[in-house]
């Protein structure tokens, strides 16, 4: 483990993090160990985000650093070892008619570093695609994102489509700038969240019965 690399990432020192990665690779550090340090760093950043100590710029920069380090490290990994077991599957996307993705990406990122397998369908996703993806993956949680009030009706339609597809074990969470309990009731979703942390705790509650 390289505490130096973890610190560089969590302190948002991008240049240092990349240099440290280079020198670790030059000294024949196991590439998988480097990726493991990245994962630890991401967990710390996720925690800080939860505690209100870091914000969107830090999440975006951390994501960039992770991408840059992966580009250096991944070609050196000989064989893929089995990936870590995921807690559960979540289908995620911004509902039909809405093209906003910043908040959706943050929630997907937080779910991912908390151990969930996230199938991100992107933006402007029609109800039928959510249904198909749930059927294909066997996911038990669906997350619907929407930035504007125009997302209310597509969210409602998506919840209805999931119900109509007879997927009784699937739970739906909704979130976004204009979402509150009144809209949860309106759309028929199981829960709503004001922030990414709520999404994580809901997912933990729903998957694995915690």
């Amino acid at each position: 483990m390289s505490q130096e690399l973890i610190d560089a990432i969590t302190d948002m020192r991008e240049d240092d993090a990349l240099e440290i990665t280079d020198s670790l690779l030059e000294t024949n550090t196991d590439p998988l160990a480097i990726l493991d340090d990245c994962r630890k760093a991401m967990e710390i950043i996720g925690q800080r985000f939860e505690e209100g100590d870091c914000f969107v710029p830090e999440l975006i920069l951390a994501g960039e650093m992770l991408k840059e380090i992966s580009v250096k490290v991944k070609p050196l990994i000989q064989e893929q070892t089995g990936t870590a077991k995921k807690l559960g599957k979540i289908v995620f996307g911004t509902v039909e008619g809405d093209i906003h993705d910043i908040a959706k990406d943050i929630v997907a990122f937080m779910l991912d570093i908390n151990g969930f397998e996230v199938y991100d369908l992107g933006v402007d996703v029609p109800p039928a695609r959510f249904v198909e993806k749930v059927q294909e993956t066997g996911a038990t949680v669906v997350g619907l994102s929407g930035f504007l009030t125009l997302a209310y009706d597509p969210m409602k339609e998506t919840v209805a489509a999931l119900k109509a597809a007879d997927l009784p074990d699937v739970k739906v969470m909704i979130g976004g700038g204009q979402i509150d309990d009144q809209i949860r009731v309106y759309t028929g979703a199981d829960a709503y969240g004001r922030d990414a942390m709520t999404a994580v705790s809901l997912a933990k509650q729903w998957i694995g019965g915690q």
Partner: peptide, 9 residues
């Protein structure tokens, strides 16, 4: 005055 209430209230 919330947008949610204007819609669903």
């Amino acid at each position: 005055v919330p947008g949610s209430m204007m819609k669903a209230g």
